[in-house]
């Protein structure tokens, strides 16, 4: 009798251990919802939510949007998103709104530019 109970408890524990994360993963969160804790524990890199890029420049992720000069044969080796590829430009510029405009004598104050693309 105690052996049966032990087997029953063991199978229940195994079911819970396997089933709960699977159930949790099936109920993947929608936008704005929080991720289920158990699913988060079992999530792999492949089933994680879509990667959100820091910059919202979709077309650039398809290979860049600027002409590549033929003379720059080694440009393909430069894949650093921050552009740290040995040119004078070392760091990516801060996007509008994250810092005030530069003090270059053109801007009246530190008001952030308003931008829209229609």
């Amino acid at each position: 009798m105690s052996k049966t109970l032990t087997l029953l408890l063991a199978s229940a524990a195994m079911t819970a251990a396997i089933g709960l994360p699977a159930w949790s993963a099936l109920h993947a969160p929608g936008q704005g919802e929080t991720i289920a804790p158990l699913a988060a524990l079992t999530a792999t890199a492949n089933d994680a939510r879509p990667l959100i890029l820091a910059e919202n420049d979709d077309h650039e992720d398809e290979g860049g949007s600027v002409t590549r000069r033929e003379s720059n044969d080694d440009e393909g080796a430069c894949e650093d998103d921050d552009g740290n590829c040995g040119t004078a430009a070392a760091a990516a510029p801060a996007p509008a709104g994250s810092v005030p405009p530069p003090q270059n004598g053109l801007f009246d104050n530190g008001t952030a530019p308003k931008v829209q693309v229609k």
């Binding site: 070392a90 530069p102 009246d108 229609k118």
Partner: peptide
């Protein structure tokens, strides 16, 4: 010389074919 400090705070996304970029700045 591509100096990023020249454009800190005044950069945004590239612009698609046929689209219109509109930027409002407080200029002197």
């Amino acid at each position: 010389g591509g100096d990023s400090s020249q454009i800190n705070g005044i950069t945004g996304a590239s612009v698609g074919s046929g689209r219109t970029l509109e930027v409002t700045l407080d200029l002197k």
